[in-house]
Amino acid sequence: MGFFDALFLGFIQGLTEFIPVSSSAHLRIIGEFLPNGADPGATFTAITQLGTEAAVVVYFWRDIVRIVKQWSRALVGKAPKNDPDARMGWLIIVGSLPIIVLGLVFQDEIETTFRSLWLVASMLIIFGILMGIADVVGKKTRSLQQLTVGRGVVFGFAQALALIPGVSRSGGTITAGLFMGFSRTAAARYSFLLALPAVFGSGFYQLAKSFSGPQVFGPLETLSATVVAFIVGIGVIAFLMNWLSKHSFWPFVVYRVLLGGTILVLLATGVLQG
């Protein structure tokens, strides 16, 4: 695959990272349909996610600065420990622990077994249905001020499921949030902030690893794709936050089930190899 393939995959990464349809699943699937198609790999996926997470930093810059500042001040006793922003800093740390631990434990599977198209398609369908159920039964009354350590851990384990392409980092955490009674916008906001430590950690780890072995795309292609993902990602965050204040997740649910079903049919008929 070449330079323009990388740019296109970067565009797809930016387009699908924040909406609950699994960006890693889309990169895995679309890679198969490009000229000389192949799996772009876990390394390319993780590095391009640095671009979309940089978009989160830009979009939520004021929130992030405020949280880091108050958390740091509370740490040295210059701000109350129950300060809402300081508390959010701790909740982001606690919620990040599951994906860090499980990411290290299942590192080999993340780069091999978990990228099976059979598994990806199944996860698209299963977690699409779970999201639809959560959107119907969730009370959607809780705000982030009602986030506790226990709920933060639940969010964290839901995020960790996104180590399997097809689950969706935002989809998993938002679904968990809806089941726990949080509003759509509150669940999405925490989901985006919670992803920062995990994605930056994974992305820079994979970036360091990329220097020691062959990759599907070279450094220039990967960098360019990451920049495209950043630019597109900013627009998608703004769209999604506005969308969630007025609409449900059902268009994404239907899309996930149809895409997953289509991939299963293509695999079963031999058009795609899993």
Rank of each mutant, 00 (worst) to 15 (best):
T175Y: 02
A162T: 08
T185F: 08
A187R: 03
A225L: 08
G201A: 02
I234H: 00
G213T: 08
M241Y: 06
G166F: 01
I237L: 15
L220A: 14
A176E: 09
A186I: 01
S168H: 02
L240D: 01
M180S: 10
L161P: 01
R169E: 03
L240C: 05
G171K: 13
Y190R: 04
F239E: 02
F239N: 05
A187S: 15
F217Q: 04
I231C: 12
L196M: 15
P219F: 12
T222A: 13
F230C: 11
F217I: 00
G235D: 09
F211R: 04
I234K: 10
A229W: 03
T226P: 07
L223E: 06
E221I: 03
S191I: 11
S210E: 10
T173K: 09
F182L: 10
T222C: 13
S183G: 15
T222I: 14
L163P: 00
V228P: 00
V236T: 08
R169Q: 04
L178A: 14
G201K: 00
A186F: 07
G235E: 10
A176I: 06
G233K: 09
P219C: 02
G218L: 04
Y205V: 12
Q206T: 10
A160R: 07
A208W: 14
G172R: 07
K209F: 04
I237Q: 03
P214Y: 08
L207I: 09
S168E: 04
S191E: 06
A195E: 01
G235W: 05
V199F: 00
M180T: 12
R184L: 04
L161F: 15
A229L: 03
Q206G: 05
S212L: 12
G203W: 10
L223V: 13
L161M: 14
V228F: 09
G233Q: 04
P165Q: 11
Q159P: 11
L161K: 09
G213A: 14
V228A: 06
I164R: 05
V228G: 01
A186L: 08
G213K: 15
I231H: 10
V227H: 04
R184N: 01
F211C: 04
T226H: 03
Y190F: 15
L163C: 03
K209H: 13
F239Q: 05
Q159M: 09
P165S: 11
M241K: 00
Q206W: 06
A186K: 03
F182H: 00
L196G: 00
V167L: 05
G156H: 07
G177T: 07
F179N: 12
P165T: 10
